[in-house]
Amino acid sequence: MTQTVLELAGISQAYGSHLVVDNLSLRLEKGRIGCLLGASGCGKTTVLRTIAGFESLLAGEIRLNGRTVSRPDNTLPPAKRGIGMVFQDYALFPHLSIFDNVAFGLRKRDEGEKIIRVHEMLELVGLKKEQHKYPHEISGGQQQRVALARALAPRPDLLLLDEPFSNLDVTLRERLSLEVRDILKAYGATALFVTHNQHEAFAVADEIGVMSGGKMLQWAGAHELYHRPADPFVASFVGEGVLLPGVVRAGGRVETGLGVLQGDFSAPCVDECAVSVLVRPEDVVHDDDYPVKAEVVRRNFRGASILYTLRLISGDLVQALVPSHCNHAIGEKIGIRSDVRHIVLFPRP
């Protein structure tokens, strides 16, 4: 039987008259990694701060292991919540060694127990050989792992991470996101982090909550978000692609500028209705032998592949991800065919 570690029940928070978090709910089970994903200003960091106890609630409740720790008339202090926190800038103490940074939250423990615990944490994050160094003597990625070890050392019930990869360069960010997931899973930690980067969310999280305007639009796994988005905003925010105008016809067919799409779908309206069809770049296949042609209007070279933006005869735009040895210029017309495996429709006014 799974154990719910974190539960947010209809929480709201405001700064003055501005509602920042609006009736948001989620559940996070023991050993799972969750992520709040959204653009700057969507309210995700405020949610994290209310969970940590740094801010009170306007409405709703926050429960940790079934115990209510926040409601509008009562907020349990952060130190009594059993929560670990990794801040965006890591917040390491520059005058303390790596060992002493990790040991900082264990000051009340027996000295022998403390030494054993710090060594366990440094072993977990692969920094035991660096324990006598100071933060300025190690890399940004190593500093992040020290911050992670320090947060896990007191054995928190829940770990919160605020934009944990934002201070790292792109290459290091991708590698460290996978390393952090491995560390959290090896430890069996329950964690929630916030990011605006969907690649980080996909790499680390088991469940992802897409936020906009303080609301939770969808809480699901990466595959579900990508292939079965709950609304047009989630469809456009997660992954790449376009919403192509279409019309539902009888017999499980959808007419679009890309051609007639056929397959399983749940129509949001009766036959002969207008819809928007989610078309991902992998749904459009480059095929010069195919009679349907599209004009290249934009190209984004990505090394192994090129993301082409194409104008159909109907005037609609689609995207296609093509191996980069197929090098086409802007204005050139190329053959394409559709290969839409997941037909996702939304009603169109």
Rank of each mutant, 00 (worst) to 15 (best):
M121D: 05
G41Y: 02
K30Q: 15
V194R: 03
V204K: 04
S56L: 04
Q142H: 02
L37R: 01
F104Y: 15
S25G: 15
L261S: 01
I62F: 09
E163F: 03
P154Y: 11
T2W: 02
G31R: 02
I11H: 08
I336V: 14
L178V: 11
A201F: 08
R302N: 09
P78A: 12
L310S: 00
P291I: 08
H18K: 13
N197T: 05
L96I: 12
G105T: 06
K215M: 06
A220K: 09
H199I: 12
G246E: 03
A91I: 11
T309L: 00
K108G: 06
P323K: 02
L321V: 04
S236F: 01
A267L: 08
C35F: 06
G263I: 07
P347M: 02
Y134R: 14
E29L: 13
F104R: 12
V344C: 13
Y90D: 09
V248E: 03
Q3C: 12
T309Q: 00
G263Q: 04
A220P: 12
T2H: 07
L168V: 07
Y187L: 03
R337W: 03
L28G: 12
K333Q: 10
N101T: 13
T68D: 10
A320P: 01
P268R: 04
D157A: 15
V170D: 08
H286W: 14
I116N: 11
A14F: 13
R341K: 15
G66L: 14
D100G: 10
G112R: 14
E163V: 09
P135Y: 08
E137G: 04
L172I: 13
D157N: 13
H196Q: 05
V247P: 00
V277R: 02
R109D: 06
L168A: 03
S212G: 00
L312A: 01
S139D: 09
R117G: 04
R311E: 02
R280V: 04
G213V: 05
Y290W: 14
P232Q: 01
V292Y: 01
F202M: 08
A304T: 11
Q143W: 02
H199M: 10
R299M: 03
I334R: 00
D283R: 07
P135V: 09
G53N: 08
L57W: 10
S177P: 03
R348L: 06
P349L: 01
T68V: 15
R145C: 07
Y187M: 01
V47L: 06
R81P: 12
L76T: 14
V247A: 02
P291H: 06
V170T: 12
L48R: 12
V194D: 03
V118I: 04
H325D: 05
L278Q: 13
G60C: 10
L28I: 09
R63P: 04
D231Q: 05
Q144L: 06
E207C: 13
E123W: 08
E7W: 08
A9C: 14
H132W: 05
K293E: 09
A205T: 07
